[in-house]
Design a protein around this nucleic acid. Structure first.
Length: 255
DNA sequence: ATGGTGGCGCGGCCA
């Protein structure tokens, strides 16, 4: 079973890339972020024609998450008890016997800002929710755009980014509290090239110069970690015309 | 160079 995540930065613009990538990767589950589509605009038919079902929680202009799946997603949730967030950033579903939680973590804008406080509070509520999900579903994948680079090796220039947004200690601590529930960063279960990143700013030719961060993660519960056989970042779509600023990340499970 | 690019939607926000 192949499970992937991709922040597409507008599904309307990126739909051809997504369909091509599904055909090439043969992913069974693709978690999308920043679809920027209302639910009535979601391209259900295009995915159906490609052999996929979908669950989605969208809004106009910002945010929006979706799960594109080979088999029917069931027990879908788009919110967490007690969060009360109008942003569509969360989508949970059961696909086969795997529970999947797609997250578009708050960016946070700037350390110390209102949005930064919102990010840390949001992460704390999500962590509580993941603890509850883990108790119910041994096979749990939490994946998406975490907007946090876990360690300095996930940052092209750790000194320039020191205590900046996406890299600050409180953000990294919040991610560690999530991992401490028993989740494993699938990418780090395997040997990886140095300077592996999943996001590159559109500006300053950052992709060409590989000035990126690894902020798109696939986290696996213990039962799934034991069955994870590979995890890769696919930079190919980032090289296309009008790319997303993120690359897809794909994990393979022996299921 | 306190900039730069991209999406949405048509001015300014967000990333």
């Amino acid at each position: 079973m192949k499970i992937a995540t991709w922040n597409v930065n507008s599904l309307k613009v990126r739909l051809p890339h997504v369909l091509d990538w599904l055909a090439a990767s043969q992913a069974d589950v693709l978690a999308l972020q920043e679809t920027k589509l209302t639910d009535d605009q979601f391209p259900v038919q295009a995915f159906q024609d490609a052999g996929y079902r979908a669950a989605f929680a969208g809004q106009k202009t910002y945010n929006g998450v979706a799960l594109v799946t080979r088999s029917e997603p069931v027990d879908v949730i788009a919110d967490i008890p007690g969060l009360g967030d109008p942003d569509r950033r969360i989508l949970g579903a059961t696909v086969g016997d795997v529970r999947v939680l797609d997250l578009y973590v708050v960016n946070g804008q700037e350390v110390g800002s209102d949005r930064y406080a919102y990010k840390l509070g949001w992460l704390a509520r999500v962590t509580e929710h993941v603890a509850r999900e883990l108790a119910i579903h041994p096979r749990l994948v939490v994946l998406g755009d975490f907007n946090i680079a876990p360690e300095d090796r996930d940052v092209h220039d750790p000194e320039a980014w020191r205590e900046q947004i996406l890299c600050s200690t409180p953000e990294r601590d919040a991610l560690q509290r999530l991992l401490a529930l028993g989740l494993a960063d699938a990418f780090r279960l395997f040997e990886q090239p140095e300077k592996s990143f999943s996001w590159w700013d559109y500006r300053a030719a950052a992709f060409r110069r590989n000035l990126g961060l690894r902020i798109d993660l696939i986290l696996a519960s213990p039962a799934l970690r034991d069955r994870c056989t590979a995890c890769v970042i696919d930079k190919a779509p980032r090289k296309l015309e009008r790319p997303s600023d993120h690359a897809p990340v794909l994990a393979t499970f022996d299921l």
